[in-house]
Write a protein that binds this DNA or RNA. Structure first.
Lengths: 235, 235
DNA sequence: GTAATTCAACCTGTACACAGCTTGTCCATA
DNA sequence: TATGGACAAGCTGTGTACAGGTTGAATTAC
C-alpha cells in the first residue's frame, strides 16, 4: 500500500487505525524507536518524512513531531535539505555514557528503592528462559529484545522518577551501538555474560536487595564496556 | 507591534530578523525557557500558540516545535483543546530531583574532570560581585540570573558530556520552583547561602579540585532542599 | 580531458486553512 | 430554583501547498 516497503502489517494498519492522537503518536514513536534500536534502521540511514508519512497513513505533520522527539533523545539528527539521519556515536561519547550509566545503576537502590514483588521475579525468570534458549540458536534481534525487556524490568525497580527517566534515555542512546557490534564480540560469550548477569540480578532480587541489584548491573555494564573497548581499540 | 504585549524589543524584532532557521529556533526556545524559569510565565500559565506566533512574527509551526521541545524538557504540558500550560512540580518529584542532582554533582569531578582556567576564576569572581550587591538591594530576577550563570559555569567544568546534559536538564526542571518560593524563604538567608557556596566553589577551583567543587555544590543543594522541605512541610 | 558552473531533483522548514477536542455559557425544563 | 443539555468560542492536531536549502549530475567553457 505504502511505497513497496516491508512490514505493511505494523505500519499502515495499526498506526492509522481508530486511535486517538496521543495514542498514534506514542505508537509511531515506539515503532520507529525500536526500528532504530533493533538496527532495522542502522546508523547513517536517511529516513525521509514523506516516506514515513505514506507508510503510516498520515501526513508529514505528526511524523515530524515523532522525529523531533527522537532527535531530542539523540537517536536521529534532522538536517535541513538532506533528511533525518540515524545517529552514530563516537567512541568518546560512548565511553562517557557507559561511565555515567554505571554510576546511575549504583544509585538505583540508593534513591527511594521499591519492594520486589513476585511479579518481578516471574519476569526475570522469563528472561532467563529466553536467553538460555539462545545458547543453541543464534538470534541477534531476540537478544536485543531481551536486553530491552530487562531494561524495562530494572526501570520498574527504580523508585526515583527522574533517575528512571535518565537511565532509560541513556540506555536507548547506546543500546544499538553495542548491538551492532554483537556479531563480532563472540555470540557465546555475550549469551553467557547475559545469563550471568540475570543470575546475579535474580539472587539479589530474592533478598529484596535493590542496592545489590544496582551493583550487579553496574558490574555488568563495566564488563561490556571493557569488551567493546578492547575490540574497538585494537584494530 | 505584536498584540500590545510588553517586551517588543526582544520578541518581535530579534526573533523575526534575518536569522537562519536553526538560529531562530534556538533564540525563541531560549527566550521562552528563560521566561518560564524567571517566572515571567509562572506555573499554570496558559501560553497559546497563536499569541506567541504573532508576537515573534512567525507562524504557529515553528512555535509548535519550540513548545514540544519545552514539553520534552518537562517545562510545559501541551493539552489538546486547552492550550500549553507551564507545569508545576509536586513535592515528591521535587525531592526526588534534588536527591538525584546531589548525587550527580558529586560525579562531576569523578567522570572526566576538566582543568580550571583563569577564565573560570574570573567568571566566578564576577558572580561573587553580583550576588554581593544583592545584600543591599532585593532583586529576585537578578538572583535567578546569577544561579543560571553559575549553572552554566559548572556545566563548563563538567567534562562528561551526557552527565553535563543531564545536570542541566534537571536544573531547568526545578529552578523556577524554588525561585517561586524565594520571597518566602528569607532573602538575607538565601543571599548569604549563595555567597557561602560561591566562596567554597572558588576555593576548590583555586586548587583545581573539581571533585571538591562537586561536593561543595552537592552540600549546597542539600541545604536548599532542607530549607524548602521545612517550609513546605510545616504549613 | 579537465574543471568550474548551472540546474534539476529531493529534502526539510514554513505558512495557512480546516478538522477535532475541550470548556464555559446560555437556555430550556423539571 | 436547580439541573440538564445544546451551543459557541477557543484551543491544539492535521493536511497541504509553497519556500528555502542541499547535493550531485549534466553541461559548458577552457
Amino acid at each position: 500500500m505504502a511505497s513497496g516497503l516491508a512490514d505493511p502489517q505494523i505500519g499502515g494498519q495499526a498506526a492509522s487505525g481508530s486511535h486517538s492522537s496521543a495514542e498514534r503518536f506514542d505508537l509511531i514513536h515506539t515503532i520507529l524507536r525500536d526500528r532504530i534500536c533493533l538496527l532495522d534502521y542502522p546508523p547513517g540511514t536517511v529516513l525521509g518524512e514523506t516516506a514515513l508519512a505514506t507508510e503510516f497513513g498520515v501526513s508529514r505533520t505528526p511524523i515530524r513531531r515523532v522525529l523531533h522527539k527522537l532527535e531530542f533523545m539523540g537517536l536521529v539528527q534532522i538536517r535541513n535539505g538532506i533528511g533525518t539521519i540515524v545517529t552514530d556515536i563516537d567512541l568518546k561519547t560512548f565511553k562517557e555514557t557507559y561511565a555515567l550509566r554505571m554510576r546511575l545503576a549504583e544509585l538505583m537502590g540508593d534513591l527511594s528503592p521499591v519492594d520486589i514483588q513476585a511479579d518481578h521475579l516471574a519476569r526475570i525468570d522469563g528472561l532467563q528462559d529466553r536467553v538460555r534458549r539462545l545458547r543453541t540458536k543464534t538470534d541477534h534481534e531476540e537478544f536485543a529484545r531481551i536486553t530491552n525487556d530487562l531494561q524495562k524490568l530494572l526501570s520498574d525497580l527504580t523508585g526515583n522518577g527522574p533517575l528512571r527517566e535518565t537511565i532509560e534515555l541513556l540506555y536507548f542512546r547506546v543500546a544499538r551501538i553495542w548491538f551492532s557490534l554483537l556479531p563480532q564480540l563472540g555470540w557465546e560469550e555475550m549469551v553467557e555474560g547475559q545469563i550471568a548477569e540475570l543470575n546475579e540480578l535474580r539472587a539479589a532480587m530474592e533478598q529484596n536487595d535493590i542496592q545489590c541489584v544496582g551493583h550487579a548491573r553496574s558490574r555488568h555494564l563495566r564488563t561490556m564496556l571493557t569488551r567493546i573497548g578492547n575490540f574497538l581499540a585494537e584494530p
